[in-house]
Simulated scan of single mutants.
Amino acid sequence: MADKQFKTLDDFLGTHFIYTYDNGWEYEWYAKNDHTVDYRIHGGMVAGRWVTNQEADIVMLAPGLYKISWTEPTGTDVALDFLPNEKKMHGTIFFPKWVQDHPEITVTYQNDHIDLMEESREKYATYPKLVVPEMAKITYMGDAGQNNDDVINEAPYAGMPDDIRAGKFYDANYKRLKK
């Protein structure tokens, strides 16, 4: 996929990315379709967190420039700008105060713990928000196709991004290789 030129929204949808923010946090993110994203967090304050089927607003601002935004059940707001032709992106994460104070609550497969996320959002302070705006370098792009549930399919583990980049995680059809 290194030589692919992103021009349309269809070029972007179905793409699987790994990127590292300038602050060192490493994320894995998948444009599942035109309204849904999946992701795993490998480094930073909430490393170990993973989410599938997160509803999001996904638009193309100009050829090769994509903006994605969503609000999580935690109350965290996210805005991402991808420039895959330049292998860079910018993300701004707006963490509620409770996530900053209790990140361990969110470090799980969120989909199995929506009630806990919503309960914590109501129980703890949400303001002031911790705003984290960062540039990132895209270190991996894979053409997983849309609606592929094998892309973000298990909890993150140490070394997972390296395994993916080295071709040790997915087969030629973008299915999980046997462990």
Rank of each mutant, 00 (worst) to 15 (best):
E118V: 15
A62R: 09
E86P: 08
T126Q: 13
G48N: 10
Y19P: 10
H102Q: 14
T36W: 00
N33V: 01
T36F: 00
E86H: 12
L130E: 02
D101K: 09
D77Y: 15
N111K: 13
E154V: 07
Q100C: 09
T36Q: 03
T36L: 01
H90S: 12
G142D: 01
D22E: 13
I41T: 12
E28G: 12
D101E: 03
D77A: 15
A62I: 02
T106Y: 02
H90K: 14
H102P: 12
T139H: 10
P96H: 07
F82I: 07
T36C: 01
E104T: 09
D34P: 00
N153C: 06
A158E: 15
V132T: 11
I58M: 02
V132R: 11
G43C: 08
G44H: 11
I105V: 13
E118A: 15
I114Y: 09
F82Q: 08
T52D: 05
G44A: 06
M45P: 07
E119R: 15
G142P: 05
H16I: 05
E26L: 07
V132G: 06
H113G: 08
N33E: 01
S69L: 08
W29V: 13
I41Y: 09
V151R: 04
V78A: 08
D34R: 13
M141P: 04
M45N: 05
M141R: 11
T106H: 03
Q100M: 11
K97S: 05
A79E: 14
E134F: 04
M135S: 14
G142I: 04
T106N: 05
P156V: 01
H90F: 10
H16C: 04
P156I: 03
D34V: 05
A62Q: 08
M117T: 04
N153V: 02
I93S: 06
D22M: 10
F95L: 13
P103R: 12
H102F: 13
A158Q: 15
Y66P: 10
A144E: 01
N147D: 05
L130A: 01
T52E: 06
A47W: 04
T52G: 03
H90D: 09
W98V: 07
N53P: 06
N85M: 00
T139C: 10
Q146R: 08
W50V: 03
Q54Y: 02
V51F: 05
